[in-house]
Design a binder for these strands. Sequence first.
RNA 1: GCCCCCAUCGUUCAGUGGCCUAGGACACUGCCCUUUCACGGCAGGAACACGGGUUCGAAUCCCGUUGGGGGUACCA
Length: 459
Amino acid sequence: MDEIDSNSPVRVRFSPAPTGYLHVGSARSALFNWMYARHTGGVMVLRIEDTDADRSRPELIDAIHESLSWLGIDWDEEYLQSERFDQYLEAAQSFLDKGLAYRCDCSQEASRARAEARGGKPGYDGFCRDRDVQPGEGVVIRFRTPDEGVTAWDDLIRGRVEFQNSELEDFVIVRSSGVPMFHVANAYDDLDMGITHVVRGEDLVNTVPRVLLLRAALGATDQPTFAHLPLIVNEKRQKLSKRRDDVSVGDYVNKGFLSEAMRNYLLTLGWSAKDDAEILPIEEFVAQFELSDINKAPAFFDIKKLEHFNSEYIRALSVEDFIERSIPFAGDVDPALYGRLAELVQGRIKRLDEIPALLEWVVGDAPEPSEKDWRKVMGKDGVPEVLDLVIERLAACAWTPESLEEVVFGVGKELDTKTQLPVRLALTGVRFGLPLFEPMAELDRDLVISRLTTARARL
RNA sequence: GCCCCCAUCGUUCAGUGGCCUAGGACACUGCCCUUUCACGGCAGGAACACGGGUUCGAAUCCCGUUGGGGGUACCA
């Protein structure tokens, strides 16, 4: 088979099955497809592979649109396979007419039983190849795979991959329900839509021979260029799974990751820019993106590193942008107050969902200090004197950040000790957090004094 | 079981026969800055899975071993 003419414009496709959410692995496939399309000035096709009956509900597809858009991935054309069944069925009929496919009425149990009897090798044995089964209840259409020869392709990432045709069973292309299956739809559409590059996860490699055989049966004499991406794995080096891992892009939206950070991180899994740069505007990555530069080994989805990217992107935001994008995470805070404190928040979070904890003592009650913190901070010599003096001066001082700082630090200088920590713990309940005096000035004088007095009484 | 694939610091990416006493980033440790935390600065520990070849020379090429993963549906 020939390669598709390399002068023809690039057409790539992202073809998810609608599952109600977008998997981060799929998101990365979409991203690499998109980057390649944009890099080459080609076309990005979104093709929803909803040949499975209960996966063609519109709300499941919305979730995909939403996540792709969130990531800033757009597409030029969109197709739904469920709207193209006629064409796949027509193709299947032509295979039947040409003797390239046949009907089969074997139940799954029967073929499994025969496989077992044969000696444990799973797979359909071609039982109905020449039985001339007629259409009817429980009848599927199977593709007749060659018994010898090899099917191979040159993968842009993996190099040459070959399969013995004898390893392939006669697989089902039309279900007994009359609904066509993934392989035919996939082969038909890639040909029909003029897809030049197939970029997807490595878990799909073993479907390539079937799709290639189907494509040839459809009359094609060429094949698209394949690029099979390494999988994204969890800490146990297994493919990310819905059951044990957070796999949906939406999960990360909810955890307070910025879309740019997510997109930037995703593209560093398996690929990198020339000069070791890891965080760049997407255009610069797109400009130098090549499929053939992608790594072969699976990559661990490291949330720590994602958080690092996220904090970089958060800090790069203007304060106005930060406020706008973070306020949905801020919880029950007066927007004006949040606006005044946002800059202090911005510099010290890795994720937007950390904001409520930082603001807790400002907008609500301060959490109870831990026993350990209390002992460590309040157990020091001189703390009672510090609190007494601070409380006394707070009663009369001006209520501005500067003035408050002057009071607290002034006491420190007089007593020759550090005063921030005991005041902070008494006021906020924790040893770390926002700079103290700006938020403190937002609180009522009475409240501040009462918290300090309560703490003093505990000593 | 069978088929396919993978293998550089804990993680990720760089390295495509000599520039490698293997580099960057994250994470980690220490110090500095700082009356919190974070940021920032400096320093540090940390890897070519193993065994054979090929070659004057191998992290880079070949073979094997080991380890890991993916697939094996009337899912995609």
